Amino acid sequence: MNREVLVYPNKLLRETSKDVMHFDAHLHTLLQDMYDTMVCREGIGLAAVQIGVPLNVVVINLVDDEGSQLIENLYEIINPVILEKDGLTIYQEGCLSVPGYYDEVERAAHIKISYYDRDGNRHEEEFTDLMAIAVQHEMDHLKGRLFIEKLSYLKRKKFEKEWKKKQKAGK
Rank of each mutant, 00 (worst) to 15 (best):
W163Y: 15
K143Y: 02
L12C: 01
A169E: 15
A169D: 14
K166N: 13
S97F: 13
Q92S: 12
R14N: 09
N121R: 11
H26N: 15
M131W: 00
F127Q: 05
D103S: 09
R3T: 03
A25I: 06
V81M: 13
A134Y: 05
H141N: 09
K164S: 12
E162P: 00
L12N: 05
V49A: 06
H22V: 13
S152G: 14
E4V: 14
V20A: 04
D103E: 14
P9V: 07
K161G: 00
E42T: 01
E84K: 14
Q136C: 09
K158N: 11
T29L: 13
R118K: 15
I148D: 06
L142K: 09
E66C: 00
A134F: 05
Y35R: 13
K11T: 13
V57Q: 07
E76N: 07
I77Y: 03
N79F: 08
H28G: 00
I90P: 00
P80C: 06
L88C: 03
N79L: 12
V39C: 01
G170A: 13
R145S: 08
N2Y: 01
I113C: 07
F147A: 09
S152C: 09
F159N: 08
I44N: 07
D36S: 12
D33T: 01
Q69V: 00
R118Y: 01
I51W: 03
V5T: 10
V57P: 06
K168P: 01
L151E: 09
L30I: 05
K158W: 07
K85F: 04
L62V: 12
F147T: 09
